[in-house]
């Protein structure tokens, strides 16, 4: 019932796509400009949600699912947890203009824009990556694995080893965070001095910099 409008389906997709990407750019500008870290975290959540919408529009439902769950959910919560721990509410304004980062990002952008001249247009059905390996997945999955969701089939079987790697990555993150955050805090010189200033006799904190 949505194809009777005279405007082909793809056009609607494209119009909404452009609008969403515009919003995405707006959010990014917001993230650059806003200095309050809490607001930055909130905007980063919005960024993920918008990204997930764009992914849905581009037919990547599974990816959108993950991005919404991870970007908007877990990573917001983790960021809030961090903000609670570091108790830093505002970012300091850099006192000098940062030239090198601008240069690097402009250089990378320039290379990309230059490189895009010869790239196939978005959504064309005869792009190289639509005609080489992908057709096999689309046509053969039912015969090989018989799973309706091709993404699951590719993820778990055709490229199952990548997914094993992915699980290892998340495992590494788990034990990494376990290791980092269950360790006793080490106290640097600045903190130690401040503490010694606070109470005159100062606790003779052992020099845990490995010099003991």
């Amino acid at each position: 019932m949505n194809l009777d409008s005279g405007i082909p389906l793809g056009d609607w997709e494209a119009i909404i796509n452009v609008a969403l990407l515009g919003l995405l750019l707006l959010v990014t500008i917001g993230i650059i400009r806003v200095r309050n870290l809490f607001a930055v975290v909130m905007l980063a959540g919005i960024y993920s949600l918008l990204m997930a919408l764009v992914f849905t529009l581009l037919d990547a439902v599974d990816v959108a699912f993950t991005e919404a769950a991870v970007g908007a959910g877990v990573s917001t919560i983790l960021s809030l947890g961090t903000l609670a721990l570091i108790d830093s509410r505002r970012e300091k304004v850099p006192n000098r203009f940062q030239f090198v980062p601008l240069l690097v990002s402009l250089a990378a952008g320039a290379v990309l824009f230059w490189g895009m001249q010869d790239m196939p247009a978005v959504g064309s059905a005869d792009a190289p990556n639509q005609v080489h390996v992908a057709p096999y997945y689309i046509t053969q999955t039912q015969a090989d694995i018989d799973v309706p969701n091709i993404v699951t089939a590719v993820l778990a079987s055709y490229r199952g080893f990548d997914t094993l790697g992915e699980v290892t990555v998340i495992f590494t993150a788990g034990i990494g965070v376990m290791m980092l955050l269950s360790a006793m805090p080490v106290i640097g010189a600045r903190r130690r001095r401040r503490r010694e200033d606070d109470d005159g006799d100062g606790d003779k904190a052992p020099n845990d910099g490995g010099n003991a």
């Binding site: 959540g45 949600l49 997930a52 919404a68 908007a72 959910g73 917001t76």
Partner: peptide, 12 residues
């Protein structure tokens, strides 16, 4: 997907 949005928003 919409349910996930609602859920994550709630928890957030």
């Amino acid at each position: 997907l919409a349910l996930v949005y609602a859920l994550m928003n709630f928890i957030g």
